[in-house]
Amino acid sequence: MKDTRQITQLIQRVLSNDESACQKILNLYKGRIFSYVYRMVKNYHDAEDITFDTFIKCFNSLATFDTSRPFATWLFTIAHNATMDFFRKNKQEYEYLDDRQAVGDDFVQEYEKKKKMERIERALAELPPMDREIVVLFHKEEHSYQEISTITNLPVTTIKTRLHRARKKLHMLVREKSEKR
């Protein structure tokens, strides 16, 4: 509740052109949004562009935001839509195809010291984008099924089915990678 109040106050300040409130919102959410988008598009610069567009859209339409709704869900919805636009522009099949390279080894190794985390990150990168998105939103971002449904505009049953399937695949991939080492 305290967080909701804090966000509502920050939004009010942003609406009166308070630059420091913008900074606070950026600092609170840019890491989460960027990580989510980066895991979807698997390219640092594309992820940064999409995150940039997400925040510009967010600040420009902040006046229309219903403060009784969770701000994070709304922000993730904008990020999801921006990512889908990116996939469409680049003629990528969001649901099934994923012909991009897996997360750059150097980049991951630079940040991921633990081998266990590396394995899960690589396994995650091998999931189809839609499944990866649902896994990240549920497990990393800890959104509920209902919130994920709002963000992705998919029915809860689809999300549940896909998440269960994705978990099994992820488990299999992690096991494979552990055995290879």
Binding site: N17, E19, S20, C22, Q23, L26, N27, K30, G31, R32, F34, S35, Y38, R39, A47, E48, T51, F52, F55, I56, F59, N60, Y111, E112, K116, M117, I120, E121, L124, V135, V136, H139, K140, E142, R167, L170, H171, V174
Partner: peptide
């Protein structure tokens, strides 16, 4: 696997990200 997913690394955009967003919005960074 669930625990590892929760603890996934958080990545960040470049350090001038905030300044670029504020500039685009027409807000001068103090």
């Amino acid at each position: 696997a669930s625990k590892s997913l929760r603890e996934l690394t958080e990545f960040y955009p470049q350090t001038d990200f905030n300044a670029r967003v504020l500039a685009k919005l027409g807000l001068r960074r103090r």
